[in-house]
Simulated scan of single mutants.
Amino acid sequence: MIEISYLQMFIFITFIWILVRFIIAIRFKKFSVKRELQMLLVYICIVVIARFVYFPLHFVDGEIGTLTIGFSKTLSDMISLIPFFFLFDRYDGWLINIIGNIAMFIPVGIVWPICFRKLDSIKKTVFAGICFIIFIELSQLLCTERHTDIDDVILNTSGVLIGACILFAIRKSRNDVS
Score class of each variant (00 low, 15 high):
95 L>Q: 12
95 L>I: 15
95 L>D: 04
95 L>C: 11
96 I>K: 13
97 N>P: 10
97 N>H: 07
98 I>L: 04
98 I>S: 05
98 I>D: 04
98 I>Y: 03
99 I>V: 15
99 I>W: 11
100 G>Q: 01
100 G>W: 05
102 I>V: 13
103 A>S: 09
103 A>D: 04
104 M>S: 10
104 M>R: 14
105 F>K: 05
105 F>H: 10
106 I>A: 03
106 I>P: 07
107 P>Y: 02
108 V>R: 10
109 G>E: 03
109 G>N: 01
109 G>L: 07
110 I>Y: 03
110 I>P: 01
111 V>Q: 00
111 V>K: 04
111 V>L: 05
112 W>L: 14
112 W>P: 08
112 W>Y: 15
112 W>N: 06
113 P>A: 04
113 P>Q: 04
114 I>F: 08
114 I>G: 05
114 I>S: 03
114 I>R: 12
115 C>L: 10
115 C>V: 11
115 C>N: 08
115 C>T: 08
116 F>A: 06
116 F>V: 14
116 F>C: 08
117 R>V: 13
118 K>C: 13
119 L>Y: 05
119 L>A: 05
119 L>D: 01
120 D>M: 12
120 D>Y: 14
121 S>R: 06
121 S>G: 01
122 I>H: 03
122 I>D: 04
123 K>A: 13
124 K>W: 04
125 T>N: 00
125 T>D: 09
126 V>N: 00
127 F>C: 10
127 F>I: 15
129 G>D: 03
129 G>H: 01
130 I>S: 07
130 I>Q: 10
131 C>G: 15
131 C>I: 15
131 C>A: 15
132 F>K: 14
132 F>Q: 11
133 I>R: 07
133 I>D: 06
134 I>M: 10
135 F>T: 14
135 F>N: 14
135 F>S: 13
135 F>A: 15
136 I>R: 15
137 E>D: 08
137 E>Q: 10
138 L>H: 11
139 S>E: 08
139 S>K: 12
140 Q>M: 10
140 Q>A: 10
140 Q>H: 15
141 L>R: 06
141 L>C: 09
143 C>F: 11
143 C>G: 12
144 T>V: 14
144 T>N: 06
144 T>G: 08
145 E>M: 14
146 R>N: 00
146 R>Y: 04
148 T>I: 12
148 T>P: 07
149 D>F: 05
149 D>E: 06
149 D>P: 03
150 I>C: 02
150 I>N: 02
150 I>T: 14
152 D>R: 11
153 V>C: 09
153 V>I: 13
154 I>R: 06
154 I>C: 06
155 L>K: 03
155 L>R: 09
156 N>G: 06
156 N>C: 06
156 N>L: 07
157 T>E: 00
158 S>A: 13
160 V>L: 00
160 V>H: 02
164 A>W: 03
165 C>K: 02
165 C>W: 00
166 I>D: 00
166 I>N: 01
166 I>C: 00
167 L>R: 00
168 F>D: 02
169 A>S: 11
169 A>N: 11
171 R>T: 10
171 R>A: 09
171 R>D: 04
172 K>W: 11
173 S>H: 13
174 R>E: 13
174 R>N: 15
